[in-house]
Simulated scan of single mutants.
Amino acid sequence: MNARLLYLLIFLLGLSACSEAPEPPSGFAGLGTEVEGYPQVSRNDRIRFPEALGAHPEYRIEWWYVTANLTDENGQDWGIQWTLFRQALQPNQGKAKGWQTPQVWMGHAAITSATHHWQAERLSRGGTGEADAQAQPFKAWIHSWRLSSQQEASFSPLEVYASDQDFAYRLQLSTDQPFVLQGDQGYSQKSEQGQASWYYSQPFFKVEGQIEVDDQQLQVRGQGWMDREWSSQPLAPGQEGWDWFSLHLETGEKVMLFQLREDGKDYYSGTWISAAGEPTPLEPEQIQMQPLELTRVAGRQLPTHWRLQIADYDLDITTRPLNAKSFMDTLVPYWEGPIFFEGSHQGRGFLEMTGY
């Protein structure tokens, strides 16, 4: 979350009486700054379920992130995004209630086709009941948007719902695969200096349901991916943004890759996930990511086509977007959209680019 967003949230949500606005932070979204009073991610801890599904308000930031690559009954390709962010404006305030809680929430939803990109944003304050996340039964929501379990005692199946003036979707996500712990048993390092987050994924969702655009209701099905991450300082000072890929290989494997950009000292990380759900962390030197083609989007040049290589797994692919204009023109702007890839492997996935 960058300074502009923080100030806008304070203004829009009436938070100025609760805390003084901090100095403008450095790095993308202010996530490369030191923050006193927040717990830091430590290798000595571990991810625990089902607690990991719910909110962690003592940490500075976290998110629940769902993407899906879909096809309708006419063979047309689509992508959807549903994201819920939580940000703490101050370290843990103990028993603060209602509007006195230092938590703010932001939701993003989008539908992407080859020719259009629909998007919407929601903002809310913690402590009001309008936005939150609970572990069991699992539910994450902001206003009417929700990601929620359909059974009391199990995570899957889920329903994801969002709507705006020009679009809506209601999808069912199901899987019998366990969660994938990214990095070292969920400890995901983000720099050589030791910044890290807790990070796990569910990349094996089967998805079906309905989308509505242009007064049309379409039946869709496909593959989904959920990322879950929380931290107090996920970036190092000087890191300006990231390029993140989730890949569904036609052979059944899944791959997560990201690079954090910093003036020639880019930091790489990733995971190779077998079709059975077994993750193998990738070392930075195993990963090569090369931008191939730039697209002028929202007044900036963005690398929308890439070459990705993991020699140890004989992966050498080129990616292309379903829609090169899949830009989230939200309070914190970024590019997010469905991609296709070909080469040594074929498949579909998602790309997110921030900090450009």
Rank of each mutant, 00 (worst) to 15 (best):
Gly129Leu: 05
Arg125Ile: 09
Gly27Gln: 04
Trp335Gly: 00
Thr319Trp: 02
Gly224Thr: 07
Gln195Ser: 13
Leu181Ser: 02
Asp72Thr: 06
Leu292Gln: 15
Pro234Asn: 07
Gly299Tyr: 07
Gln172Glu: 10
Glu62Gln: 14
Arg261Asp: 06
Gln219Ile: 09
Gln193Cys: 10
Leu260Gly: 02
Val160Cys: 09
Asp214His: 13
Gln150Phe: 02
Glu262Gly: 01
Ala324Ser: 15
Val180Lys: 00
Lys139Ile: 09
Glu152Cys: 09
Phe205Lys: 00
Leu308Val: 08
Gln81Pro: 04
Leu89Gly: 01
Val220Pro: 00
Glu283Thr: 15
Glu121Cys: 08
Ser124Met: 03
Phe340Asn: 06
Gln301Lys: 10
Gly355Asp: 03
Arg221His: 12
Arg122Asn: 09
Glu73Val: 11
Ser191Leu: 05
Lys206His: 15
Lys265Cys: 12
Leu308Gln: 02
Glu212Cys: 14
Ala88Asn: 04
Ala324Tyr: 09
Thr280Gln: 14
Ala52Trp: 04
Arg146Gly: 08
Gly32Asn: 08
Val332Arg: 00
Arg320Gln: 11
Tyr313Thr: 02
Glu250Leu: 12
Lys190Phe: 01
Glu352Asp: 12
Arg46Phe: 13
Asp166Tyr: 07
Ile287Lys: 04
Glu34Gly: 10
Ser231Cys: 11
Ala29Gly: 13
Leu260Phe: 11
Pro137Trp: 05
Arg170Glu: 12
Met226Trp: 01
Asp176Lys: 12
Leu70Gln: 00
Gln182Ser: 07
Pro291Phe: 06
Ala276Asn: 11
Glu20Leu: 15
Val41Asn: 01
Tyr169Leu: 12
Ile273Lys: 00
Gln93Lys: 15
Gly14Cys: 11
Gln286Glu: 14
His248Asp: 06
Cys18Arg: 14
Gln100Lys: 13
Leu6Tyr: 06
Ile80Trp: 00
Gly238Thr: 04
Leu5Ala: 10
Gly14Tyr: 09
Gln217Pro: 03
Glu336His: 11
Gln93Pro: 04
Leu173Tyr: 06
Ile10Met: 15
Thr115Trp: 13
Asp243Trp: 03
Val66Asp: 01
Leu123Met: 13
Thr83Met: 10
Ile211His: 00
Thr295Val: 08
Ser154Tyr: 14
Trp230Gly: 00
Ala311Gly: 06
Gly209Arg: 00
Val255Trp: 01
Leu123Ala: 07
Ser231Trp: 03
Arg300Thr: 15
Thr319Arg: 02
Glu51Val: 09
Ala109Lys: 01
Arg146Tyr: 13
Leu218Phe: 05
Leu351Tyr: 04
Ala120Met: 04
Gly194Leu: 10
Pro178Asp: 13
Gln81Lys: 08
Ala55Val: 09
Ala324Lys: 14
Val160Gln: 03
Pro102Ile: 08
Asp132Leu: 04
Pro25Met: 10
Gly94Phe: 07
Ala140Cys: 11
Ile287Asp: 01
His248Val: 03
Trp244Leu: 06
Glu278Gly: 05
